[in-house]
Simulated scan of single mutants.
Amino acid sequence: MRGLVYHGPRDVRYDVVADPALSNPAGAIVRVGKASICGSDLHIFHGENARGTGFTIGHEAIGQIVEAGAEVHRFKAGDRVLVSAGVRCGRCEGCASGPHCTVQGDNFCYGLGPDLPGSQAELLEVPYADANLMRLPADVSEENALLLADCANTAWYGAKKAKIVPGAEVAVIGLGPIGLVAVMSAFLQGAARVFAVDPVADRRRRAEELGASSLAPEGAKELIMEATRGGVGHVVDAVGTDESIDTALRVVRNRGAVSVVGLSPSKRMAFPMMRAQMLSLDFHIGLATGEDTPGLLNLMRAGRFNPAVVFSHRLPLSAGVTAYELFDQRADGVCKVLLDATA
């Protein structure tokens, strides 16, 4: 098969690699129909967090099962499915009590290394298919469904953990695809006003089209504090850097909530403990588990949630190298790229 293979920092190639084979009877092989590039894939592209070389990357995909193991009970060959980015066994104590699967361990997401190759390929092995696949409903568009693999779930989770209530004033830091969907999520969860902060003008324009008040990072704190007379009660940080977290902590008001869902590269940051404690802040950082997927599907069916508007480019998988270059350089008004593995 062919796929986008990581060979080193900024060296991704459309290469021939071996077809995946079932490694356990609870798994399945999926023929990928559509995949997409996530902002966290850029960390791999840049050489951050990559566990070796020679593996396909990516963790957002929909497709069709071509082979199901003997211990797969919920799916069969021919089923059209959504592949969840987060990988778990669904059987261990860790899966029963929370998001940390003790069986999968560090192999919690596709496309980080050769032990669990990624979805930007023609074929993908899905371990523990019953726990990691969802049948695609006919009344939800493929592009909306694809975003439920990670982007839409993460954005919704970020807004939920910011404890947004009806009438709330909210700030979203970072307007990549997850940040833009977080703007949509904040309004759906009851926000009356959303301030959207990003250095890229085209991203700010997209946020304004979603109903947000957009701001460049320079002076954003002062403008938000003035407009809200003391800060917003709820902040979603969709970047995850020390700088973005610091911005989030500076625009939140007394007894407010800050939710960080941007993938943080920081091993340790200087957290303003005294300020957070004196303001009685709620601070949450984490990863979505997919628990909100059924509700988000219902919102999509009702026509109230259409995250597919973040797709700016649709390219064949064979043009994946160009797609990564566009995304990395923020060129040509790129927001999120869809890759068609059947084209």
Rank of each mutant, 00 (worst) to 15 (best):
D11S: 08
I178N: 01
D328P: 00
A171V: 05
I37E: 00
T293I: 14
A162F: 12
K76W: 07
R31A: 14
P272A: 11
V236I: 06
P9W: 00
V309R: 03
C151N: 10
V5E: 03
V236R: 15
K163N: 12
E48H: 00
L180P: 02
G262H: 02
M184S: 02
G39F: 01
L148Y: 05
S266W: 05
D41R: 03
A26G: 05
D282A: 05
S84L: 02
I245V: 14
G111D: 10
G3I: 05
H59F: 01
Q64G: 09
V17G: 06
D328Y: 00
M184G: 02
T342G: 08
S280V: 15
V172E: 03
A159N: 09
A68I: 10
Y324G: 02
Q64E: 15
E218L: 08
G113E: 11
E209L: 10
A288S: 12
E169G: 06
A216K: 10
L180H: 03
V200L: 09
D332P: 02
V172I: 07
A248E: 01
H43G: 00
L136Y: 11
E222P: 01
G262D: 01
V251G: 06
N153D: 06
G33P: 07
M134F: 05
A323R: 02
M274V: 11
P137G: 09
L133N: 07
R10K: 06
A26F: 13
G219L: 08
D19E: 14
L338C: 05
D237P: 13
G113H: 08
P265L: 02
D11P: 00
G33H: 08
G98V: 00
A191Q: 08
H59D: 00
D328E: 03
Y157I: 06
H284S: 14
V334T: 04
V200I: 15
A196L: 12
C101I: 01
M278G: 08
A21I: 15
W156N: 11
V200C: 00
N132W: 11
A21N: 04
P307L: 01
F55T: 10
A68F: 12
V81K: 05
F283D: 06
G90C: 05
V30I: 15
Q104Y: 03
S244G: 07
G179R: 04
D340H: 11
V194C: 03
C92Y: 07
C335I: 15
V260R: 00
V32Y: 07
F311L: 09
A28R: 06
Y157H: 15
L297G: 04
V17Y: 07
P316N: 04
A155Q: 07
V261T: 10
W156Y: 09
S84E: 01
C89W: 02
L210T: 08
A216E: 12
V310K: 02
G233F: 13
R268I: 03
V140L: 09
V235M: 14
D202R: 11
G230S: 11
K34D: 12
A319E: 15
K160L: 12
R301V: 15
G190P: 14
H43W: 01
R91E: 11
P99A: 14
V126D: 03
V310R: 00
D202E: 09
V32D: 07
L148H: 09
A308T: 13
A96D: 14
L4V: 04
I285C: 10
